[in-house]
Amino acid sequence: MSREAKDVILASIRRGLKRFEKGRGESPAPPPTWNAGSLKHSYDEDSLTREFVEEVIKVKGHAEVTDSGEEILSFALGLFEEYGTNSCAMADGDFLESLSLAEHLESKGIGVVRPGSGDSVVADAGIGITEADYAISDSGTLVLLTNENNPRSFSLLPPVHLAIVKRSAIVHNIYDVMEELNSSVVKYEHPDQFPSCITFITGPSRTADIELNLTLGVHGPKALYVLVYGDKG
């Protein structure tokens, strides 16, 4: 039945376009993608970082620049205190690993949920900790690629999201990030290398469905904290 529907739909499209050849035509050449060249400037990491932090704050997130692993640890510990929780769900990022953040938190009596745990366990965690693959300074956006180390739900189910961003991962605008993604993930041959989900996150979850009142945390996190780290350029 589905075959039949497909054929009927494709035939009526061809009829509508007054093209009567059967089967699939030659691969058409689309108009060129828009070239963002006119918007390209040479941004240094400092100004990208500054803009990124400002924009995250504009979309009701919190953002800070950190210089050391200790600073990140103490910031995280401060959050656990502030939100009165002692559990988190932490992704397996390289940098998070290098800080031994999980071990440090566990030594302070904080339960750390790792990738592979069930959704309801993740949902009960107080804070979700992730490492962003890219960030966009112009809009204050985090870009997260799903893989075995980075489950989708860690940035989504816990009521607070703490994301770590490398300074060198910040690009200026959406054109830049799409170019990056296009030259990395799109070229993968094996379908399993292509991330099943790429999530762009700009501020905490929000709604304005009740009389246009902006309310944070409707389904996703109510609060978003972003820590930028890395050597100064």
């Binding site: 809009s139 893989n147 075995e148 959406i174 099943s196 989900c197 762009f200």
Partner: peptide, 19 residues
Amino acid sequence: KLSTYVSFITGPKNILDND
């Protein structure tokens, strides 16, 4: 400038994905 969430979804979960 961007909505809070934009998801690019390509197929079901990959074999190794945890969710």
